[in-house]
Simulated assay, not measured.
Amino acid sequence: MAELEAEFAAYFAARVSVVRRLAYALCGSWHTADDLVQITFVKLYPRWRRVRRDAAVDAYVRRILINSYLTHLRKHRHEQVVAELPESAAPVADSHEDLGHALRQLPPQQRAVVVLRHLEDLPVAEVAELLQVAEGTVKSQSARGIAALRAAMSKQPGEV
């Protein structure tokens, strides 16, 4: 039992930052990303004995993360917590923030496709399997998402 826990702890230490970055890319919030990472590893732990021998542990973890993200979206679809309402939209400081903002404007499944295909560099077939959609859906969602990101990034500051 101690050996299993040590293996799990080593896997966690090695992969937590990668999973956290992916979670952030999906949701756009470090706080929510941390929650999703915690949920992911809590769900992984009881299955570790069976999963650890599988060569595709990372794919299994991604599937848990994606499912947790989509569940989170369904539960919190219209929530947005802010301390104070802003007078106007805050100016965006750089293109990295512009991209993050543009990503958050994509519909959830389209954002997941774009993140998995282009940030995680996963093949179409693996993204389709993770999201449980057809490969054609991945291709079309990816193309539409990239087009929307290009359009959003080409707008001048202040344009809507």
Rank of each mutant, 00 (worst) to 15 (best):
A89I: 06
H96E: 15
L70W: 07
R74S: 03
D58Y: 13
R104L: 06
A93P: 14
V81P: 12
Y60M: 05
I64M: 08
E87W: 14
E87V: 11
V81N: 10
P91L: 01
L85W: 15
R47I: 01
H101A: 06
E84Y: 15
H72K: 01
S68V: 02
D98A: 04
Y45K: 15
V57M: 07
E97I: 08
G100W: 00
R53N: 14
L65V: 06
E97M: 10
L99V: 07
V61K: 02
R52M: 06
P108A: 02
P108T: 03
Q105T: 13
R74Q: 08
L106Q: 03
L73A: 02
R62Y: 11
R77V: 03
L99C: 04
Q80S: 09
V82E: 09
P86I: 06
S95G: 04
Y45W: 14
S95L: 15
D98L: 06
A56F: 12
L73Q: 07
E87G: 03
I64S: 03
K75T: 05
P107Q: 14
Q110E: 09
P46I: 08
D98K: 11
G100V: 05
V82G: 13
S68Q: 01
H76C: 02
V82A: 14
A83G: 13
P91R: 06
L106I: 02
I66S: 04
L85M: 14
R104G: 09
A89R: 12
E79W: 07
